[in-house]
Write a protein that binds this DNA or RNA. Structure first.
Length: 419
DNA sequence: TCTGGGGTCCTAGGACCC
DNA sequence: TCTGGGGTCCTAGGACCC
């Protein structure tokens, strides 16, 4: 291997949410390790959030998959122990992991709540990489209590693919020269960025393994998949060269909140209230980021077939006020809703710009006053908690006045197609 | 009795302008 | 009114990730 090449580790927490729970419970006197029994972290069925978020290795043996409905999982695994999620705990575990990694190098890129890349180029030599990764793996296990899989290679894509090779509690390499042997025999859907739609099309073309995708004619892929084809071909060949970015976060492109309501919404008034609760959190997050938006969109998921549709609007002058966002949401909802029962509603803002550049349009409502109210409410919520103040129209409705994750929970930079 | 919630990027089509 | 092209902006939807 060329010494000028980069050396990247991908650190992936095994069954993250479930491991975090297991460790926490053991630390608090639990006799059973959740990782040793059929168990899963899942939302509440009563509020229709009942899907599997993470599962133990024994659960996996029953064929239970992440994202599956609880009732489906229980059909496969009747004695499944269900644990409700505790995101605050997971954030703590996440921060501990990041801190530990920063002890090795400051070039740490947080990729998700349970995945990080670290750039070890120049820190160690390539021939020390497995040894170092094992050291890191052991330290995490000893100090934090959970296991990780570490992948090693010369770029982020290969490091990520490497960490998938052996789980749990393992270190694997996938250097470019190992691609034919280790990556090409894998089913094509194992390749990062090959999801359901793409793998279906690839199989139809007779491309079943990553190797066969790698050897496929690039022009054919470009013809069939447009720009996506080039990405697929590159990834199948291990080509990717983005850098490990230790910046806290990429520039935010949009902020959204959405929620599955625990009953079907069939009237406009209820829908409005949910939109308001979503707009409240979206607005607050927008203002905390010091941003304004020029696009507001809503999404509606139908109760009967779970399909969804959306409607959006571009506005002339950027806004950051909850009321303004809410007013546009109502308008969008009225234009879009066809009257069918609703299971899920979402509010999202995009086309963001710094709040300081905002000029209020003369023709729009007096939102200067509204801004002051927003600011005051934000301050009270920051100081006394999100539940300390809410709009009186939520009283007695049984609806949450604030819907969706605030601050940290939602602050995850999610990956783009360019790693 | 019932499938979450947070993101990013790309594309196609229509409106509109030159 | 016919013909055509190029470009931008906006919107809806779909792909993917964790």
């Amino acid at each position: 291997m060329n010494s000028k090449e980069k050396l990247i580790f991908h650190v992936d927490v095994n069954s993250a949410f479930l491991s975090f729970e297991a460790v926490y419970r053991l630390q608090h006197g639990a006799k059973v390790d959740l990782r040793d029994i059929p168990s899963a972290v899942a939302g509440s069925q009563a509020t229709r959030h009942g899907i599997i978020l993470a599962k133990s290795a024994p659960t996996k043996k029953y064929g239970v998959k992440t994202g599956e409905a609880i009732w489906e999982a229980k059909r496969k695994c009747p004695h499944l122990v269900i644990i409700p999620p505790n995101y605050a705990l997971y954030m703590c575990c996440h921060h501990s992991l990041v801190e530990l990694l920063k002890g090795f190098t400051d070039r740490v890129q947080v990729f998700s709540i349970d995945e990080c890349f670290i750039d070890m180029s120049g820190v160690i030599e390539a021939d020390q990489s497995v040894e170092t990764a094992n050291l890191l793996r052991e330290r995490i296990k000893k100090e934090l209590g959970f296991t990780v899989s570490i992948g090693i290679s010369t770029n982020k894509l290969l490091a990520k693919m490497a960490s998938e090779l052996k789980k749990p509690d393992a270190v694997s390499t996938l250097f470019p020269e190992e691609i034919p042997e280790k990556m090409w025999p894998l089913p094509v859907e194992e390749l990062y960025m090959v999801g359901r739609a793409t793998s279906f099309k690839l199989h139809k073309m007779g491309i079943d393994t990553i190797g066969s995708l790698a050897k496929c004619d690039l022009n054919l892929l470009k013809y069939k998949f447009k720009s996506w084809g080039k990405l697929l071909w590159d990834y199948a060949n291990g080509i990717e060269d983005s850098s490990v970015s230790s910046a806290n976060r990429e520039t935010i492109k949009g902020i959204g909140n959405s929620t599955t309501i625990h009953f079907d919404v069939e009237d406009k008034k209820t829908a409005y209230q949910i939109l308001l609760s979503l707009a409240e959190t979206v607005g607050m997050r927008l203002r905390f980021e010091g941003l304004c938006c020029r696009v507001v969109s809503i999404s509606i998921k139908k109760a009967d077939d779970l399909t969804s549709y959306s409607h959006q609007l571009k506005i002339q002058s950027p806004i950051d006020s909850t009321t303004a966002i809410y007013e546009y949401c109502k308008q969008l909802f009225d234009e879009a809703w066809k009257g069918e029962p609703i299971r899920h509603l979402g509010v999202r803002v995009s086309d963001l710009s710094p709040a300081s550049h905002v000029q209020l349009s003369m023709f729009e409502r007096d939102w200067e006053k509204q801004k002051k109210i927003d600011r005051a409410v934000d301050q009270i919520r920051t100081k006394f908690g999100p539940g300390s103040i809410f709009r009186s129209n939520f009283l007695w409705t049984g609806l949450a006045p604030l819907e969706g994750g605030l601050s940290d929970d939602a602050a995850f930079p999610v990956m783009t197609s360019i790693l």
